[in-house]
Nucleic acid binder design. Structure first.
Lengths: 248, 248
DNA sequence: CGTGATTGAACATCAGTGATGTTCGAAACT
DNA sequence: AGTTTCGAACATCACTGATGTTCAATCACG
């Protein structure tokens, strides 16, 4: 686990912590801790005060992208590989924001298809590809996450029809359907789902226990769910609800 | 001058050149030349054949972005500084693609304004800024240049009204007006100009002698031209045509 | 079909960059 | 005023990316 993540979790759990304590906890020097706190403060994770920092992470909000990106990478890669296998050359795909979908993007780099990513991270991962046709939606990128949102994004999606939408999410269950932390994100996901004939959800196992604030869509609107949970209650709940679940 | 640029020009001037000759010319090893040629071939600058490479650069087309980016940097920075000075905090600005406008983007990083760049390079330069509101237009990024073009871009521009448009171009003269190498680019520039109340052209001196294929707009639609040419005939031509010219 | 030139993969080397630690003067809190 | 905290500046170190060298495989041409 990276030191930044370690710090952010320690501060979140304690509410607030001093620089010296964090230095002792991580084994790094106080100067390094200060630099880390500066970074985390810029990301909105916490707030500095003289001698320490207090957490700004609300329960029910999402930790910033930079802290999630190297989390659970193995599972994400395996899920992404399966998703990429479900996509055929020549298809047009709209690709959601989030770290799992970013892994999918990396795998599509040399494929011959049309892709519209909903996050600038994925756009950057694909912008050097000569093989595929890259479409960028308009919108306002949310800081850190770089997920595109707002009326421009919705307008871009409404003017196009895709073969497949690959959607990530923050929570997924048979009961509550697909949910997201951010309201704007949720409406973008909805628009993406509405613009595609086929919908694939890419969801690592940890999301299957979670339910977030904003409702996106019922599970009935998903054609397939790709996840890394194996022989799990929650997977059974989804299949019972009539969803095709593919395990990576 | 970078070795890549040196190679690309030598091959363009000779039509085709051998690896050994290029190694002698640049002082690098043949292996390095091969790697360089691979890079340039991927950019579409030239075509490899066994033992050498032949140029693919058409007269009248634009050398790829990566080769222009570190060219004339001083002049571009000075022009960009003047342009940035013409913009007020709180303004909404549409920022054209190209290396000069990219320098402008870098200077806007910590300003409090709304910016819509027309190239992903500038988007990336600004995406970490907490101060400004970044808007991304939709579109298809042209490889290398990463300039956004196409119907999505035009639609994004048509749905917005900006205070100022900062436009770069490939050619500018009193006689032919503003011109661009790429037809799609030209229509995007036109749309950007149409969506803004005030239009500033950022043009280094070398563009004032050039005229490119696609007409963008007459000089009468420009409110100001920022350039680094000092006491030049061409500048006089522009001022005679009623354009406000600011020299950096 | 053979021969010599060309290629690219693998490894060595080196410089430049980024992360970390240390020091010390300035600023802030009590 | 005294103590603590901060951050700028510099030193250090690991790592990455660029370059060169070597050598076996491949290609073109006679």
């Amino acid at each position: 686990m990276s030191r930044l993540k370690q710090i952010s979790e320690a501060v979140r759990d304690a509410g607030s912590l001093g620089v010296a304590e964090l230095a002792a906890l991580t084994g790094a020097s106080e100067m390094t801790i200060r630099r880390d706190l500066e970074v985390l403060a810029a990301q909105g994770v916490l707030e500095r005060y003289r001698g320490g920092a207090r957490s700004l992470l609300l329960r029910g909000s999402e930790p910033p992208f930079a802290l999630r990106s190297d989390e659970n990478t193995d599972a994400k890669r395996r899920i992404a590989a399966v998703v990429a296998g479900l996509l055929a050359d020549g298809e047009s795909v709209v690709l959601d924001s989030g770290t799992t979908c970013l892994e999918v993007a990396r795998l599509l780099h040399d494929r011959r298809m049309t892709v519209m990513p909903l996050s600038l991270h994925a756009v950057n991962a694909l912008s050097s590809s000569p093989a595929l046709t890259l479409l960028v939606p308009g919108g306002r990128p949310r800081p850190g996450e770089l997920a595109l949102t707002g009326p421009l994004t919705l307008a871009s999606l409404e003017s196009l029809r895709f073969d497949t939408a690959v959607i990530g999410c923050c929570g997924l269950s048979a009961e509550h359907g697909m949910t997201a932390f951010d309201l704007e994100d949720a409406s973008v996901k909805r628009a993406a789902i509405a613009s595609a004939r086929r919908v694939i959800a890419a969801v690592d196992a940890s999301k299957l226990t979670r339910t977030a604030l904003a409702h996106v869509a019922p599970v009935s609107s998903l054609d397939a769910v790709v996840t890394d949970a194996d022989g799990d209650d929650r997977v059974q709940g989804l299949t019972a609800a009539g969803v095709t679940v593919v395990t990576a």
